[in-house]
Amino acid sequence: MDGAFILAHVPDYLSGAWVTLRFGLYGVACSLALGLLCCLVRSFRVPVLRQIAGGYIELARNTPLLVQLFFLYAGLPRVGIKFSAEACAVIGLTFLGGAYMAEAFRSGLESVDKSQTEAGACIGLTRAQNIRYVVFPQALATAVPALFANVIFLIKETSVFSVLAMMDLMNVADTLRTSGGHTVEVLFMLAAAYLMILLPVSLLATLAERRLRYAGFGDRHSV
């Protein structure tokens, strides 16, 4: 392997990694918000919105991000709806991620026993207080592993952003590769870059899970 080549192109990869990470995180943040919203709309049985959320989740979960992006970036402008590549990236990732996050939140909510809400009601908490102090903390703790899995999944999915002509890691590598000569080095650095982005996220996930497991609960989970 050509060490000099690798060193010379570290800055390219750094800028690519920054694009991947930045838009990945924008997408993750929006996905969390959209997912939470969908989950709440569904579990509180808000009429109409609930059906829309349900339909959206099915659509998003059962189509590839690549196809979603093509539709957003190359299809919609033809009927007058134009977004920049960056906007497409965030919208696409959010469209996909929102559905996965909604499901993670929902399984968290469903894991909280009905008797917990009843116990909260019996000490006179309002519905909102009950959700805030009793249901949500427990639901979130249960949902954390799935939420983190989704974060990793979404950051990985950003690799298709290169079709939007964004200079993310994938596109940086592709450009260097086609300019010839150093395919092995280019690919090696690509893999290493993703590893360096995702390893900390994964460690964070393990840490959070462990903390939650020690911090309490176990009433239903362990034993």
């Binding site: 008797s115 917990q116 116990a119 019996c122 427990q138 911090a215 309490g216």
Partner: peptide
């Protein structure tokens, strides 16, 4: 006030 069979303390 009400107390149930399953205690229902808040585990967190």
């Amino acid at each position: 006030g009400m107390v149930f069979q399953s205690y229902d303390l808040f585990p967190h």
